[in-house]
Structure formats: C-alpha cells, structure tokens
Amino acid sequence: MQKLGEFKLPQFFNYPPYFTLQPVKETREKQVQLWKELILDYCRTQKIFIIGLEEEFPLFSNPVIERSLSHEGREAFLSALVSEGRAEWMDKGHRKCLILWHRIQDWADIILQYVKDNGLEDSVVTIEEIRSGTESQGTELYGIDRTILNRALKLLEQKGKLVIFKGTSADDEGVKFSV
C-alpha cells in the first residue's frame, strides 16, 4: 500500500477520477465525503492544522498516477469541511484553511482533561506551556495551533473555567484555571 511518510494511503488514492471533480451529483457527494475523511485523517495523524491552497500539500497530488487536484477541487473539498464545521477559512480569499479534526468544543474538553491530569486546577500556566510544556508532551495538545488553542481557551473563559492574562508579549500570555 502506498504511503506518505508514515501515513497509509487508501487504495482509491490511485484512482484517477478521485482527482477530477465529478459532475454527477451522487458520485460527487461520495467523492466529497471521501476527500473530507482523508483530509481529516491525514491532518490528525500528521498534526497539520493549516492547509494553504496555493502551497504544496501532499494529499493534493499523486505523482504515481500523475494526477493532482485542481484549485477548484481543493476549494470544493475544503469548503465541504467548512460547511460541516470541521474547518474554517482563515481569510476572505479562501487561501488558507484551518482544519479542525477536533471541533473547538472538543479541544476545550481536551484542555480540561489536561488540567485534571496534571492537577492544574487553580494554577497559572502560560499558553506556550500548554503547547510545548513537558506536561503536554504525548498529548494531542502538544504542538497545537495557536489560533485553535486561543479559540478553545476563549470558549472556556466564557464558561468561567479560566481567566486569560494579557502578558507583555504573546509568549508570556497566561491563564489561571478555576475548574
């Protein structure tokens, strides 16, 4: 089976029509679903948070069969993810897309779990620590995208689970949990 680094590609990745936007409704629906699943699956395992439409993205071309996805196709499949709440456009021009293999709500739950696991209730940590601290190593939070982390923390702040402190720079922004 073909691989992209560690990622095992499904067989249909070598199916040329997979790379052509199908015009027939039913066929296209299935194609879109398969692309959505593959993108989410790939991003989750490879910890990819942002897909740039104009940049190289390994999934969007298959040198083995010499096929690559057109810009129209990329936008169509990512838009399908956006409409399901599994992605967000980061700019109006749809050039960058934030992939949410966990929804923001799910990320918030993961943070709470992290707080509980490390006994951080009522403590203060910097945001950077959540992303790259020793406690977060081996969890899904390790290396999380800054935008997603901020969004999840904001959600928790709204729920009164924590307070965000503005630091002098982005590096020393901190949060005080009050779970």
């Binding site: 499904p10 040329p16 029509p17 790379f19 052509t20 027939v24 066929t27 299935k30 398969l34 096929r67």
Partner: peptide, 21 residues
Amino acid sequence: CRDVSPDGFRFYINLFPEIDL
C-alpha cells in the same frame, strides 16, 4: 466517472459507491 488530465478526457468504471466511507 470521469478523469480529466493533461492526457485527455477518459472514463472509468465508477468505484465510488463501493468504497467504504
């Protein structure tokens, strides 16, 4: 289903319905 590429416009048997989502 169709395959549009620099090689031309070709048709393949439709496999999409058979793939397990």
